[in-house]
């Protein structure tokens, strides 16, 4: 019985049989190579004109920037809403891990506002199902392990699948209360990892 890999390969092969002539195509390629020998790019007039124009524009831009530029406003970490962070993270493709492999979550901490509710930091493990996400696990995190840290290392789930790992909550450092947030989407490979073996 064929493996799925072999079936895919066979399917693509059977549906891409070329009936053209290699001789004809080679004669086109070789005749074009002889008829139109490629000039060195720097000897072409359009290239020289283009390069000179580009250099002039670049220099003018740099000069203008040096004269008129003001330091850009750098948003403080406190200003970045968790929702924005979430949207940015979701645009990225999942990183691939083996079951039980360490996964590093980058923590974003910022001073809590008065209106934010204080809650113990938790790790939420969301699993992507066919239609919707399901909460696969929830772990209460030790505040001391979060406080002042820039990352948190956890262990990837054992079951293969697509997961969204979210850290949310707050902790105290000194006399101030901070909100902490982290999110990462990962793909846990299982037995299918053998299929990913590279061809030699």
């Amino acid at each position: 019985m064929k493996t799925f890999d072999e079936t895919i390969e066979q399917t693509l092969r059977q549906n891409s049989e070329w009936s053209g002539s290699a001789d004809e195509l080679w004669s086109k390629v070789s005749s074009q190579m002889q008829a139109e020998p490629e000039k060195r790019i720097w000897t072409r007039k359009p290239f020289l004109f283009g390069a000179a124009t580009a250099a002039t524009v670049f220099l003018a831009f740099m000069l203008h920037t040096m004269i008129t530029s003001v330091p850009p406003d750098v948003p403080q970490v406190e200003e970045i809403a968790p929702f924005q962070t979430f949207r940015i993270m979701m645009l990225e493709e999942p990183e691939v891990y083996l079951p039980g492999e360490p996964v590093e979550l980058v923590l974003s901490s910022y001073l809590m506002t008065e209106t934010e509710p204080s809650q113990s930091p938790r790790l939420f493990i969301w699993r992507q199902g066919d239609e919707e996400e399901m909460l696969a696990g929830e772990v209460l995190l030790d505040e001391e392990k979060i406080s002042g840290q820039s990352s948190l290392v956890i262990t990837s789930p054992v079951d293969p699948g697509l997961y969204r790992l979210v850290v949310e909550g707050s902790f105290t450092a000194g006399e101030q209360r901070f909100t902490v947030f982290a999110e990462k989407t990962i793909l846990v490979e299982g037995e299918i990892s053998n299929e990913n073996d590279e061809k030699n």
């Binding site: 799925f4 895919i8 493709e93 999942p94 990183e95 691939v96 793909l187 490979e189 299918i192 299929e195 990913n196």
Partner: peptide
Amino acid sequence: RVKSRLYVAR
């Protein structure tokens, strides 16, 4: 990313 795309595709 290649691994994840191949996995998802399969």
